[in-house]
């Protein structure tokens, strides 16, 4: 009786192992890691959007606006608007490890919430742009963009990876 039960349990174990292998294969297909340098990705994104009022920002601005430390990532590229009355922004993060994605996504979420609160009530155009933002995670790359051409920029982002 016990021998039979052990055989059944043993069979369950091997089925589980096969299931684990299938699970890993499915995961491997979904999580793309890109070797593209951030400069190439940034160039593709900035070409696809209107960058007239945007200027590159340093690591301190990254920390001030998003609460993240740029040195923790492989590379970070941030463009912010020259005027406080504009909300256009481009953030590209190349992660060291895809497990960092959650942290960046949550930092972007907080940034969007803070901006929405700032423009709530008197900046309908800015609020609309913020609500239509694109936050796209593709493997080890994350794009956050607030722009009238956000969708086009996102397509360029994906193509560049």
């Amino acid at each position: 009786m016990m021998d039979r039960m052990i055989k059944v349990l043993c069979a369950v174990k091997y089925i589980l192992l096969v299931f684990l292998l299938v699970f890993i294969v499915v995961l491997m297909r979904g999580d793309k890691i890109s070797d593209a340098p951030i400069e190439t990705v940034t160039e593709a994104v900035t070409k696809a959007t209107d960058m007239t009022d945007l200027s590159p920002a340093d690591n301190r601005t990254v920390r001030r606006l998003y609460g993240i430390n740029a040195n923790d990532y492989d590379a970070v590229s941030l463009y912010v608007s020259d005027s406080n009355m504009k909300v256009e922004e481009v953030l590209i993060v190349k992660l060291k490890d895809v497990s960092q994605a959650d942290g960046v996504e949550s930092a972007v979420g907080s940034r969007v919430d803070a901006q929405l609160r700032s423009f709530e009530g008197y900046g309908p155009e800015q609020s609309r742009l913020l609500e239509d933002h694109v936050l796209d995670t593709q493997g080890n790359y994350i794009l956050f963009i607030v722009s009238g051409q956000a969708q086009a920029a996102d397509r360029a982002f994906r193509d560049s990876l």
């Binding site: 491997m28 999580d31 793309k32 070797d35 895809v98 497990s99 994605a101 493997g139 080890n140």
Partner: peptide
């Protein structure tokens, strides 16, 4: 896996493409 492949690619004269998975918490 990612660390291993990164080092293998560093040693080899060519790059073996690989996909790194996120770390389960």
């Amino acid at each position: 896996y990612g660390f291993l492949m990164e080092n293998v690619n560093y040693i080899l004269p060519f790059d073996i493409p690989y996909r790194e998975l996120s770390l389960p918490v």
